[in-house]
Design a binder for these strands. Sequence first.
DNA 1: ACCTGAACACCGTTCAAGT
DNA 2: ACCTGAACACCGTTCAAGT
Lengths: 182, 182
Amino acid sequence: MARPQLIDREAVLDAALAIADEHGLGAVTMRAVADRLQVTQMALYRHVANKADLLDGLVERLLCELPAPEAALAWDVQLRTMAQGVRTTAKRHPGVFPLLLQLPANTPLARGVRDRVRAALVQAGVPHERVTSAERLVSTAVLGFATSEALGRFRGLSRAEIDRDFTLLQQMLLAGIEGLRH
Amino acid sequence: MARPQLIDREAVLDAALAIADEHGLGAVTMRAVADRLQVTQMALYRHVANKADLLDGLVERLLCELPAPEAALAWDVQLRTMAQGVRTTAKRHPGVFPLLLQLPANTPLARGVRDRVRAALVQAGVPHERVTSAERLVSTAVLGFATSEALGRFRGLSRAEIDRDFTLLQQMLLAGIEGLRH
DNA sequence: ACCTGAACACCGTTCAAGT
DNA sequence: ACCTGAACACCGTTCAAGT
């Protein structure tokens, strides 16, 4: 006999993300997630393979939040928008964000983000054979900055100082990209 | 009555680092460290305040490994040497290295590294009021790249490709630094 | 002074059982 | 089909006790 379904995968991820945002990644235990859903820990395993799968789900959630600027916009506007979006997500979910750095990034969603960056670089005039490495360079730099910010490595600096640093980084990257044009 | 001292802080850190290098940070448990030292877990607490303190000790160990190039060398040689040293350490200790990104970096050793980078930037002709932010920019970029490498985000790329990417990053950073000169 | 035994609260995970 | 109870192996940490 079917009994009323109390939770589903989305609800599990919602609860886990809320806990991570409020109390950090360390507070995300199967028990804590279950408690928030008014359910026992074991109930989670029907909707999530294990804890690693749950964390993968959280990363996917962050990737969903990243902006997808119109391809009709100027290439540098597209890149700036995406870079700013990465920072915004990092600040909104500082506990989960660092996981982005250690992911293989082979999921459809991660590939989608990468393809958007590559497309903007092609529009910028970067020759095709250099696009792959240029994308890695830009993504690594932006991800590294945002992760540092999320993990508190810039603790003690004012928001204005961090913003100025980020602008400087963007200028360097844009100048570097222009140097790759044919 | 004094009994023979079986272990000390250095031995604890040696064992923990060896385990992390061999089996990853997740394998570094108080039990595993104690087992390797032929001692019970509880014995560790006399030499290490708790697990967080142990991890701090590991980070210090990595900072010790970073090269300290002669100040008489050309500024760009100094920076290249330090950047290469960061990468070497990241590859030698991929399990522990990511911890560098989340550390407050206010320990004497971390300050020492930062001061060496700052000194090289001053030699490069970066005006004093911009040295602080330039140092953060350079360090964040290099640390972000090395962390990505350590965490396997470049998995699937050949060593030659990664090296080329890193050279590209260095060139961009050096160009950016030259742009800051007065 | 340094190490150990016993104990505690916590963690992820499994599996048979209930509805 | 979905959730629960009971159980397991593991974790960090404490404290009194032994030498």
